[in-house]
Design a protein around this nucleic acid. Structure first.
Lengths: 338, 338
DNA sequence: TTGTAAGCGTTATCAC
DNA sequence: GTGATAACGCTTACAA
């Protein structure tokens, strides 16, 4: 298999490589006749430009790095679909990494990307991420980085989130209106913004309703599903168990469902539940699961649009330090109804 | 931001670029003292090698292209997690593409990758893919390509599948043993192997049980969810509706659940259902969904291991033309029980 | 043990 | 309108 490159085409055509290159790039200084000849041969031999030679010269790779904390999750899958929808229109490629909610993994991924492998990064930080030194470094390298969902607040860049506070507030209010008086809040970590903000909404809703509250109603969960199952069961067994649960992350709601079934409690009769989630089959669950679902595709598309505009030298739209909020929609289903 | 490259390090250290390069690559011909000096400065300045310069020289990109027909699907997400688990140990990166079950899209993706952007491709073909000309071209370019789940049978390479025929057979037998006498089979396309093989298993099970069969019990569905919903409802309404459904793809089972609910039929009393699926919450559905689930992580890991071994020049394991079968597990749940 | 120089494939700059 | 040349950052013969 001979490698078909510009030099090879040039030889075949008795032209200089530079001419061929210009013809392929449809340069205005090349005659129509030449262009046609070049294009024809290129097509015939199925010439494909070497992306790495290009990247090396141009200092841009036409590649975006995407880092998510979890791959088996509809929300992140939808966001990536949204990103890809836009980026592919601009000929960009997606390097996708799963940090598995692990900061160390996240740091390693970031360090790979620092070498110029990607032109920009879109990410959702892991729930373990507290120090943001490794993220600051990305900016120092001059690589645009934007965040969505789980954002690094102190990094001066654009962040796309949903109305976490309001959704947390509304979901809690909904539970209260459904008759809950003792609502627990499940979260992965207080370190991350979505945890904090959704929690703040929850707390304010309880306060606004003049309901009692105890610190230990806020349950900090683990990464491991099994541990969470035990943790949740441990507070379901006692008589003074909660009558409502707001879960800030989908997978904790799933664990809660399992835990509740195992303790023979009934949803929603004994305990009501609502969760942040983009599960498509929430309505097919038993009972149908109430969700607060984010506009995931749109978040992905918006992230990508911003980057594409920024990377397009002619437009040179800068990436401002701001937070863009795209509201979620609460889907009330049986799991949270009285 | 000055770009920190080998030349820059060399200047700072009063050495030749080649020496720095060798030191960084821990070459045996460099003295320990030099190595240490170089490493120290590299670390201090946070030097990151330019991957594209490397790729250009080495003719390998340390990148694998992954093409899937659908991103919002646990099976594919798990496979990719499995691939990543292995490839990252070897310092490989994953370029992930969603073909959206569209051959044209698939061709476009392939053509991008032909330029040498990836060292190998792992893919599951779209259900529309009948001609495999674009896939053959990959091999002609000398790029290793391996398939999983939806394979291109006539391409001489290694393909990883599950025991599609047997699983189709067993699942159908299970429905028959649960009392079904009129089982419909849902598939995306007869073009693709998983459709064909699972169908063959289904047909043989019916034949082996001496049950009647009509051609129109095999339902070729669409890509669009809405159309499928109507299609399924159309055969559920009549009196002579099926009493069992075997779905060869997860999303068709979901549509079937919706359709059945809308027609007020009951699962499993009126109609029993089992599907190929890697849904993690099948047991939380209403009713719990019987599934044939593939060893997705393992498939991903095996794909990656084979490629890593093949790409490792020292081992130079060739990619044989063969089909490797990793069996699925049938999880019988209420949706298919009598 | 270290330095020199060439080349990977492309394109921008300068010349003709 | 087209050709020669250099350079992107890295590695590897070949020299020293």
């Amino acid at each position: 298999m001979t490698k078909i490159n510009i030099k090879y085409l040039a030889e075949k055509l008795n032209m200089a490589p530079s001419t061929v290159s210009r013809a392929l790039n449809d340069s205005y200084e090349i005659s129509k006749a030449t262009k046609e000849k070049v294009m024809a041969l290129a097509k015939e031999l199925n010439y494909q430009p070497n992306p790495y030679a290009r990247s090396l010269r141009a200092h841009r790779s036409k590649t975006i790095g995407v880092i998510i904390p979890e791959r088996i999750n509809n929300f992140f899958a939808q966001v990536i679909d949204g990103i890809e929808e836009i980026t592919q229109q601009y000929g960009y490629h997606l390097l996708v990494y799963n940090s598995h909610e692990d900061v160390e993994q996240e740091k390693k991924i970031i360090s790979y990307l620092l070498g110029g492998r990607v032109d920009a990064i879109v990410m959702s930080v892991s729930s373990q991420t507290s120090s943001t030194e490794h993220l600051e470094q990305v900016l120092r390298q001059g690589i645009p980085i934007i965040f969505f969902d789980r954002i690094a607040q102190n990094i001066p860049t654009t962040k796309f989130i949903t109305n976490d506070y309001q959704s947390g507030f509304d979901a809690t209010m909904h539970l209260i209106q459904s008759g809950c008086r003792k609502i627990y809040f499940l979260l992965l970590s207080k370190e991350i913004t979505i945890g904090k903000e959704r929690l703040r909404g929850y707390l304010d809703a309880i306060k606004a309703s003049n309901l009692p509250f105890l610190e230990n109603w806020v349950i900090q969960c683990y990464q491991e599903e099994k541990k969470n199952l035990e943790l949740i069961k441990s507070f379901l067994y006692p008589m003074d168990r909660p009558d409502g649960i707001l879960s800030s992350v989908e997978k904790l709601a799933i664990s809660a469902y399992h835990a509740i079934k195992q303790t023979k409690l009934r949803i929603p009769e004994d305990i009501k539940l609502i969760t942040f989630s983009n599960l498509k089959i929430a309505d097919l669950m038993n009972p149908p699961l109430s969700t607060i679902s984010q506009p995931a595709y749109e978040i992905g598309r918006e992230c990508a649009k911003l980057l594409m505009n920024n990377l397009n030298k002619s437009k040179q739209i800068s990436i401002e330090d701001k937070v863009i909020t795209i509201p979620s929609v609460i889907h009330v289903r049986s799991s949270s109804c009285s």
